[in-house]
Amino acid sequence: MSILKVQDLHVEVEGKEVLKGVSFEVRSGEIHALMGPNGSGKTTLSLAIMGHPKYKITKGSIILDDEDITNLETNEKVKRGLFLAFQNPVEIGGVKLSTLLVAEHNRIANPSGSVTEIIQRIREMTKTVGLSESLLNRGVFEGFSGGEKKRTEILQMMLLKPKFAILDEPDSGVDVDGLRVIAESIKKLKEENNTGYIIITHYRRILDYVNADRVHVLYKGALVASGSMELAKKIDEKGYEGVIKS
């Protein structure tokens, strides 16, 4: 059983305070949803947790199983079991997707695996998330559709088997089949690996699929509401205004 605690997190971007003291905790196997209107700081929170150089933590801490990981290098956080699926991952033309997958698999998932085993695993995963094998031979995200990007992020999550995964809008721009594959993957990893999740989303649908445990609403850099799936239902019916004002 692991616990990820975010305590009183204050984050500045280019001199402007975007997060003003956010606290919550997630345990292994729990699925938390993070909702809130555009510009409320959801992506900022995910990037700050992972340590993007532009997002400066001015106060507060991130604790993983009693270890303060606030100021660790990003790759060290990943080694300790954190994972971020990007909302809109950047294209890295020169690096082949297959090269990246092999590299990360070697470093994180199974450092002692043989090349044949790795290839076998990557092939299986590719199939599971419904990606064409030909994409593996392309530059990372080079000419990928929105849906293919999301599936590729999920593929990497399945490969790395993190303790905690932050998924930034895994459901936006994804078709019905894509949504089902992504939700199934989330559930599968929860069952097999007891992974805990923070899923950033605007839609109730994915949360219904995975049966989220908690829903948080972030507004202007602070958590203004927390509750069960009922909260997501309310947002779906009445919009954010009803929740924020109440």
Partner: peptide, 19 residues
């Protein structure tokens, strides 16, 4: 992005260059 996949800065750089 690459560091988010567990690759350290130096390796990430040489990956980009060799790519």
């Amino acid at each position: 992005y690459l560091m988010n996949r567990g690759i350290d800065e130096k390796e990430a750089t040489s990956m980009l260059v060799l790519g």
